[in-house]
């Protein structure tokens, strides 16, 4: 398993990186954490002629906060997400979920932006981004633009990014006060992608649901937000019955691909299980 030859480029600014991507065209790929790209290259499924390594662009890493908006640099690693005090305080779903991604070493290299930009429905951050109402900051030759998560994921390995775009930051809103959250991920073993996973963010007001997000990982061609399931709970005092009903609504929009993890029936059923468990856990944490 040996990667093919390529030219290596290491820009130190976003501008420089975008310039390289524009001039090199579609034969160039961005090297972020590399834990999706390098294995693909070793298997010679991917054979880019140029790699643009954006690991040394310092402006792409780190977490900052302005009011309710928390901005996470795209090259912030999973372990940095796990350790970040701002995220733990304001969007604790992200650090908790990141612990379920890959393994300790891979989390030192894997980045939140790489996870999102890859467009792989098996990755966890797309569903988390949807659950956190994230907005992506994308820089291309024409400058920066903002794309909400809901418009970012277009299909399997297909996002709103152009070949010469770089995802530079992910901005999320701090959770409402007292919000509960949960990410339940069923996997075969450490390091595996989800057989099915569900993120839930919920806030209560007077015992009734005032804010709810239910999103799903690896249960369709992209991460999915389960609007109908949210509608079941929205404004309600949640009962076990309603949770089951919400899970059914979520299962109804699942369109998973059969693989060694299971067939469509199993994965859909597991979506239901994960949705129920995530809602229950999120509620237990909400106050």
């Amino acid at each position: 398993m040996i990667p093919p030859s390529f030219e290596y480029h290491r820009p130190s600014t976003v501008e420089e990186a975008v310039g390289l991507l524009s001039s090199l065209g579609s034969e160039a790929k961005i090297l972020a954490g590399g834990h999706s790209l390098l294995p693909m290259m070793k298997l010679r499924f991917a054979m880019p002629e140029h790699l643009v390594d954006i690991n040394r662009i310092s402006e792409l890493s780190g977490v900052s906060v302005v009011g309710d908006n928390i901005t996470i640099g795209a090259m912030t690693t999973e372990n940095a997400v796990i350790a970040d005090p701002i995220l733990n305080e304001k969007v604790p779903l992200l650090p908790e979920a990141a612990k379920l991604i890959a393994d300790p070493q891979v989390r030192n290299r894997g980045t939140i932006g790489g996870d999102i930009a890859h467009g792989d429905p098996a990755n966890d951050h797309p569903a988390l981004a949807l659950a956190c109402d994230a907005v992506m900051t994308v820089v291309g030759p024409a400058g920066a633009r903002q794309i909400p998560a809901s418009e970012f994921f277009l299909g399997t390995y297909w996002t709103a990014l152009n070949d010469d775009d770089i995802l530079t930051a992910i901005t999320v809103k701090a959770f409402p006060d007292g919000a509960g959250y949960s990410y339940r991920k069923l996997k075969r073993k450490t390091g595996d992608w989800a057989t099915a996973a569900c993120a839930v963010v919920v806030a209560l007001s007077g015992g009734k649901v005032s804010h709810i997000r239910i999103t799903l990982t690896n249960l369709g061609p992209t991460a999915i937000r389960a609007h109908d399931a949210e509608a079941v709970l929205s404004g309600q005092a949640v009962t076990d019955e309603l949770i089951k009903h919400a899970a059914e609504k979520a299962m109804a929009i699942c369109d998973p691909a059969e693989d060694l993890r299971g067939d469509v029936e199993y994965k859909t059923a597991m979506a239901g299980q994960m949705v129920q468990r995530a809602i229950a856990e999120a509620l237990s944490r909400a106050n």
Binding site: D103, R188, K189, T190, G191, D192, L260
Partner: peptide, 28 residues
């Protein structure tokens, strides 16, 4: 609990890396 060498009808071995072939970690 997990090891298998699943083949499809064409004789392709599905799952020939350690992503799929089950070697448990300390967690499992």
């Amino acid at each position: 609990m997990g090891q298998q060498m699943p083949f499809d009808e064409q004789g392709n071995l599905l799952g020939n890396t350690l992503m799929d072939y089950f070697l448990p970690t300390a967690v499992e």
